[in-house]
Design a binder for these strands. Structure first.
Lengths: 334, 334
DNA sequence: CTGAAAGCGCTTACAG
DNA sequence: CTGAAAGCGCTTACAG
């Protein structure tokens, strides 16, 4: 058995109350006492038990984080940022992989509740009513990452998807493109789907380019779907000069199939991605994309959550700036 | 305040002992009692408090996982597997990002200890004596992933790095290559560095190919270093026909610089990676590589750890099978 | 079949 | 400056 506060109290000939006081620098003891206690703590190698402390304080100093897919580059960048800030403030983070499955999500929420986490970060998924209900019931602060919700005022931190998409397409137009296709993410996705499509259409409209439904094809954000989408584009709309994909993975999928067809990027067709994951720089040619500062977003989400936990107030949502990272997959048309 | 066991006891007109019993299906109560209790649990929306339970059981049902870099594709695949199994068994997982920093690692270890985790998975890093000491002191089971140690018998789960590297180079030789360079990971790394270099040398030797020190260059497993390494290879040993990199990232870095120099893979030079991360399939041409089943490794590590926690016994180490995934970056020389 | 009580390792009024 | 005591929300002998 590891020593408890009782053991040090005994050995130091003081009460456990006193040990607790010096442990927390609460004052109200003589220097001599403090020294004695400090020393026997060292001798015994005493470590406080956060569980016992948590029971009485009703604070566990741990936060829960829910991802649709922990192993995606997207989630893991976020997680890195979240973890960084949390640990700085002496919070631990528990991860949960929802697999985008409602049952699983509910089960994890339940688990996090039983474990008495102090707050929850909910990432990249729509906060359904049923989730919100249990969250509300748990009475812990929640912040959304790359997501939003209409239920109540749950703060979120994300990029302006509509605007980012708009800017991306504007960029393509500024490079002389007019026949611009889009590979969208999951159809109907209210966060990373629809708003990006709207940004695309709006940018087109701003330049009097009419929307051609053959130019819009749907994927699911993943690599394979980008490749498939590009296949249909090549077949149905070979005149397209540029394609904007709603994720880097899909953009890279598109890039692969273009190459597979013996064409070159950007000479024959330009491709633009979304996210700026690490792999955007790793492909050949390096991908031009719109960047979301995922690590920072994670950090700030963590910061807001901990602020809410410790202050009891609610935090303000925050929209992060996106930016266009010019690399080598977009050609200027003359 | 959320309701406690006391509240349900009161409302159901039984003692908390009885509530606890029906909660755990311990038997020793009438059907009628069970029904009454079950119902008021539902009515009150009672959820047990795992913290209180943990205090008394000395089990928190949570495990800690330490990664040098949570945001790497490598770590996140592992994490996915770990999380999957753990949650299946109703364990939560706490992640820690060590940044490969000794101070940080020690700090996290301390944190995990205070939080009373039931066990720890230590990934991709050498288990230094100082870490081992505190781990030993914590008296919780530990399993190593993609790592090994000489201290005591801490079980590990990994691939046979030496053999995997040997097989990779043998594969290259079987394709007719004899001038084979290697881009190694961090020099002196006892897990993913040295053994892979040895496998390389051994395979060469097996075919009477003498080792040329100009053909061996060191990186740090990351993309950029692979590119740099390839630059020196191109300059100092342009006659090389194939290069084996000790990580997919480095292989892809090499691939980029080869392309940048106007050469083609695999026509002008063959490249082979190590890991089989998702991105190996995403680059063009898709990377031939040696696969480690990271997700499964994570899962099994989780399984072993939980086995140790629950049985009190120690688990056996396990070597996973690697395999060669043939894609399109290796050419047959005739 | 059921309850009173001790106890897990702490913190925090309260009293002196 | 210091200690005795209550209590956080549970589980588990022990007794009946």
């Amino acid at each position: 058995m590891n020593p408890t506060i009782k053991d040090v109290a005994q050995k130091a000939n003081v009460s456990i109350a006193t040990v607790s006081r010096v442990l927390h620098n609460l004052g109200g003891y003589s220097d001599k006492t403090k020294q004695k206690v400090d020393q026997t703590i060292k001798e015994l190698g005493y470590q406080p038990n956060a569980i016992a402390r948590g029971l009485i304080n009703k604070r566990t100093q741990t936060i829960g984080v829910m991802f649709p897919d922990v192993s995606s580059a997207f989630s893991s960048d976020l997680l890195h940022g979240i973890d960084e800030f949390a640990h700085d403030r002496n919070y631990s983070v528990m991860v949960c992989n929802t697999d985008q499955d409602g049952k699983r999500t509910l089960k994890y929420l339940q688990l996090l509740r039983e474990k008495q986490v102090d707050g929850i970060i909910f990432s990249s998924e729509v906060l359904k009513k049923e989730y919100y209900d249990v969250l509300e019931n748990m009475k812990v602060p929640v912040v959304l990452v790359s997501s939003q919700t209409d239920f109540a005022n749950v703060p979120y931190v994300k990029v302006d998807d509509y605007q980012a998409s708009y800017d991306a397409v504007m960029y393509l137009i500024s490079k002389g493109h007019r026949k611009i296709a889009m590979i969208s993410g999951t159809k109907g996705d209210p966060i990373a789907g629809t708003p990006r499509v709207e940004g695309y259409r709006k940018a087109l409209g701003a330049h009097g380019i009419s929307f051609d439904s053959r130019y819009l094809v749907y994927g699911d954000f993943l690599y394979e779907s980008g490749g498939r989408a590009m296949e249909v584009l090549l077949r149905k709309a070979p005149e397209v000069t540029a394609v904007f994909a709603a994720s880097d993975e899909m953009a890279i999928g598109a890039l692969s199939t273009v190459t597979k067809h013996g064409m070159n990027v950007p000479e024959d067709i330009s491709i633009m991605g979304y996210d700026d994951l690490r792999l955007a720089q790793m492909v050949t040619p390096p991908l031009t994309t719109v960047r979301q500062p995922l690590y920072d977003i994670g950090k700030v989400a963590s910061e807001k959550l901990i602020y809410m936990i410790e202050s009891g107030k609610t935090a303000k949502s925050q929209i992060f700036n996106h930016s266009i990272v010019e690399r080598q997959t977009v050609r200027t048309l003359t």
